Simulated assay, not measured.
Amino acid sequence: MVLQRVLLAVLWLLAGAAVGTCAVLLHRYPWGLLLGLATTAAVLVAAVPGWWGRPAFAAGWLVVLAVASAERAEGDYLIAADGRGYTLLLSGTVVLAAGVAGFFRRPRRVHDSGGVETAP
Rank of each mutant, 00 (worst) to 15 (best):
V94K: 02
R72C: 13
R72T: 15
T87V: 15
V116H: 05
A56Y: 00
I79R: 10
V100D: 03
V67A: 08
V95K: 10
A73C: 09
L62R: 00
P55K: 13
Y86T: 15
E74M: 05
R84I: 01
F57N: 09
A56P: 01
R105V: 08
L65E: 03
G114R: 07
P107S: 10
E71M: 14
D112R: 08
D76K: 01
G92W: 07
F104R: 15
G115K: 08
G92M: 10
W61T: 06
H111D: 07
G60M: 03
V94L: 14
L78Q: 12
A101Q: 12
L90T: 01
R84T: 06
S113M: 03
L89N: 05
A98Q: 06
V100K: 01
G115I: 05
A80E: 06
S91L: 13
D76P: 00
A68V: 04
Y86P: 00
V64R: 02
L62S: 02
V94C: 06
G102S: 14
S113C: 02
T87D: 05
E74V: 07
W61E: 04
R109I: 01
G115A: 06
A97S: 10
P107Q: 09
G75H: 08
G85M: 11
A66Y: 04
G92T: 04
R109H: 07
V95G: 05
G60A: 08
F103L: 10
A101V: 05
G99K: 11
Y86C: 03
L65N: 01
S91M: 15
G83Y: 12
G75N: 03
L65C: 02
I79V: 15
G75S: 09
G85Y: 06
S69G: 14
L90H: 05
G102P: 06
R72M: 13
G60N: 03
E71A: 10
L89W: 14
G99A: 03
D112F: 03
A59I: 13
G99R: 06
Y77H: 15
A58Q: 05
H111P: 00
G99Q: 09
T87G: 15
L65I: 09
A98E: 13
A59T: 13
R105I: 01
P55A: 15
R108N: 01
G75L: 08
L89I: 14
G115V: 11
L96C: 06
G85H: 10
T93R: 08
R109A: 12
A56R: 03
V64G: 02
R84A: 14
G102F: 13
I79H: 12
V63P: 01
P55T: 13
A97F: 10
H111A: 13
R105C: 03
A80D: 12
G85I: 07
A56S: 14
F103I: 04
A56G: 00
V100E: 05
